[in-house]
Simulated scan of single mutants.
Amino acid sequence: MSPDRPVFVTHSADVRKAALPPPDPEALALSQDLSASIAAEIKARGGAIPFRRYMELALYAPGLGYYVAGQQRFGPGGDFVTAPEMGSLFGATLARAVAPLPGSDGVLEFGAGSGALAAQLLAALPPTPYAILEVSPDLAERQRQRLAGLPVRWLSALPACWRGVVLANEVLDAIPPHLVELDQDGVLWELGVALGPEGFVWRHLPASDALQERLAPYLPHWPRPYRSEVNLAAEAWLRDVAEHLECGAILIIDYGHGAAEYYHPQRSMGTLRAYYRQHWLEDPFYLPGLCDLTAHLDFDALQRVAVAAGLQVRSYDPLARFLIVNGLAEVFSAASGSADPLTRMQLANEAKRLTLPQEMGESFKVLILSKESPCKSPSTASKTATP
């Protein structure tokens, strides 16, 4: 998720409080209720919970979490701006890549946010079945309002067998990862969350064998201390989708790196960030429920999982290259040809933000996976649809 002109704010409490806009009373009360709920779970579980559980509650706790509490999240008036909300170029260019992909079930979008990308794809694609699987009831309702009259259906679960395109645009970064830390003595810990005198604090928890094994190649090269993430849950998501995909493609669009860059010794504080009102922070404990929490993806790990699950890696590119290869220049020319000067300037600014290395062009990656092997079961998308 790309904040609109991001501003770095240190985790220093004094600087943070002075620099950030305060929440309104209703939002502050929601955050306080969520904090109390998380604190109660910490106490009930012996004084600490894994950070991944804290992040799950902060984002998805029923009625209180960031994505389910009804606050405005997307666009200039929210906390961040996603690519399809900057304008029409991203969606129109993505449609050119999606159109030739196989599958009679059409497009299944995970976590459709405000519905902006769905609207753009449906406008650019030939008549195509379109489904959305959204875990947030609040966002699903907003999508229904925005997409009213369009041929979209909402699914309550992943279909048993899908023939078509599965799209995850800026979704996997919000799946809670394991947060790990190598301490000064060379001991690897999983980071947890406990209660301190003034709020939530970090706590070292034993790292599992799976985490130890995954990070063993990197540990000797890391400085001490060193902090990073391992997103086993995102990998499990991909395995699950691959199992249910009969034929078609999976498109993952998000910010991330290959493993060598992700776990580079100089990246000693990892990639975890909080987003609040177009600012990004290093402190994930600031106003729980009012901040988006994200971490970059390890795209090498996702590709290994994909191949092991029977998928083929069709392409893996930085966003800029993906858009250029799929006709961004032609889309821009068509959109700006008869536009007024102000619209042309807006389109040019959008193209720059999508492609410049210091914006989204290099930090965002596009991974396309495909599968052609048959599945024994018929498609069951209609059986899991909701109106």
Rank of each mutant, 00 (worst) to 15 (best):
P6G: 01
D14K: 09
A19N: 10
E26D: 12
D33Q: 15
P50G: 00
R52D: 11
M55E: 03
A58Q: 03
A58R: 03
G65Y: 04
Y66H: 00
Y67L: 04
Q71P: 00
R73L: 15
F74G: 01
G75L: 08
P76Y: 11
G77W: 10
F80E: 09
V81C: 04
T82P: 08
P84D: 03
G87W: 05
L89F: 00
F90D: 06
F90H: 04
A92R: 14
G111P: 12
G111S: 07
A112N: 05
A112W: 07
G113F: 05
G115W: 12
A116Y: 02
A116L: 07
A119L: 12
P126V: 05
Y130V: 03
V135K: 06
P137Y: 11
Q143N: 09
V152Y: 13
W154Y: 12
A157F: 03
C161L: 12
W162S: 02
W162M: 02
R163P: 15
N169K: 09
D173L: 07
P177L: 04
L182Q: 07
D183W: 08
Q184M: 11
L191R: 15
E198N: 15
G199W: 01
P206S: 09
D209Q: 12
Q212A: 05
R214V: 09
Y218A: 01
Y226I: 09
Y226A: 13
A233M: 06
A234C: 03
W237V: 07
R239T: 01
D240T: 13
D240I: 00
E246I: 10
Y255A: 02
Q266G: 13
Q266K: 14
S268C: 15
M269Y: 06
T271V: 13
R273C: 02
Q278L: 05
H279A: 01
L281P: 06
F285S: 04
F285Q: 02
L287Q: 05
L287A: 07
L290T: 00
A295F: 11
F299A: 10
D300G: 15
R314D: 15
D317C: 10
V325Q: 06
G327Q: 01
E330T: 04
P341W: 06
R344A: 06
Q346H: 15
A348H: 00
L354Q: 03
T355V: 02
L356C: 05
L356N: 06
K365D: 05
K371M: 11
E372W: 15
S377W: 06
A381C: 09
